[in-house]
Design a protein around this nucleic acid. Structure first.
Length: 257
DNA sequence: ATGGCTTGAGTGTCAAGA
C-alpha cells in the first residue's frame, strides 16, 4: 500500500496536479491539506471517475483536509474530540485495517504569538486523542503538514531558523511527544540524502536554491514501521507550472497478510 | 527592510501562509 501526504495549497487550483500525480505514482491513499474549500464544492465526482473514494472536512478560504483512497473507507471521523476548534484540520478513516489520520497542523505564525499558543494547545489535544486511538488501532498512520522541522538537518539554514517558528524547542518537543506515543518518522527509517525538504518559499527562488524545510511527515506505529519499505519526498510536482509550495511525501507499506 | 510569492475573498487590497 502506497500512502502519501501533500499540502496542495488550494485543491481547486491543484486538482490537475493531484490527478496527474495519482496516475503516475499509483498512490493508494493520499492525505491532502489546505483544500481551502467547503464540502459542497469538493470534486468528489472527478475523483470517483479515476477510481478514488474521498472524504473531506473543509471550510471556506482556509484549512481543509481530505483523504483520497482507492479502497473503501470506514469509521470516518472529523476533528479532534473534546477540543473546541472552528478550523478544519483533522480527518481520519480506517482503510484496509489501517487507521489513517490526516492533519493540517497550525502554522503558529511567530514564537510567542496567540497563534503559537494555539499551535501548542492543538498539538497537546492531538496527542491526548491519539493516545486513545492507538489503544484501539495498533496499525495507525499519522500523515500531514506538521508545520514542524523536527531536527536541524531538516532545515536548510539551521542558524537563521534557530528558535524561529517551525523550529523552536517547544514545537520540537510537541513532535517528540507524538513520537513517544510509539509513532516513528517513516522518512528516518531509511538512509536519506542530505538536504531533503518538503516545503520551499515561493519567494526569492527558494526552490531553485533548495532553501527549504522538512515539515510534512508520515508517522507510523511499529506494526506499520516494520512493514515500511520506503519513504521519500517527490520533488517532481514542485517543478511544475503553478505548483503548491509543498511537495508530496510518500511511503510504501507492505500491508498484506 | 515585516519586504520578497501565492491564494481566496471580491473588484481594491488585505489576511494568511511558513
Amino acid at each position: 500500500m502506497k500512502i502519501a501526504t501533500w499540502n496542495v495549497n488550494s485543491f481547486k487550483v491543484r486538482l490537475p496536479h493531484v490527478l496527474d500525480w495519482l496516475a503516475t505514482t499509483q498512490t493508494d491513499v493520499l492525505c491532502v491539506q489546505e483544500t481551502k474549500m467547503e464540502d459542497k464544492v469538493f470534486p468528489y465526482a472527478e475523483l470517483q471517475a479515476v477510481g478514488y473514494h474521498a472524504v473531506h472536512n473543509g471550510q471556506k478560504t482556509y484549512n481543509g483536509v481530505a483523504i483520497l483512497s482507492r479502497l473503501e473507507m470506514t469509521d470516518v471521523h472529523l476533528d479532534i474530540p473534546d477540543f473546541e476548534d472552528v478550523q478544519k484540520r483533522v480527518i481520519a478513516a480506517t482503510i484496509d485495517g489501517v487507521r489513517v489520520v490526516c492533519g493540517y497542523m497550525p502554522n503558529g505564525q511567530a514564537v510567542g504569538s496567540e497563534k503559537y499558543d494555539y499551535k501548542l494547545q492543538w498539538f497537546a489535544a492531538l496527542t491526548r486523542w491519539l493516545k486513545n486511538e492507538l489503544a484501539q488501532h495498533p496499525k495507525l498512520a499519522l500523515l500531514g503538514d506538521f508545520n514542524i522541522a523536527p531536527e536541524d538537518r531538516d532545515v536548510h539554514d539551521p542558524v537563521a531558523w534557530k528558535d524561529q517558528i517551525l523550529c523552536s524547542e517547544p514545537e520540537r518537543a510537541a513532535f517528540a511527544k507524538l513520537q513517544a506515543l510509539g509513532l516513528q518518522d517513516a522518512f528516518r527509517l531509511f538512509e536519506q540524502p542530505e538536504k531533503i525538504f518538503s516545503w520551499w518559499d515561493y519567494r526569492q527562488m527558494g526552490f531553485r536554491l533548495n532553501r527549504g524545510l522538512r515539515i510534512d511527515h508520515i508517522l507510523l506505529t511499529s506494526e506499520l514501521a516494520e512493514r515500511c519499505r520506503s519513504c521519500l519526498v517527490d520533488k517532481a510536482p514542485r517543478k511544475l507550472e503553478r505548483p503548491s509550495d509543498h511537495a508530496p511525501v510518500i511511503a510504501e507499506v507492505a500491508n498484506g497478510a
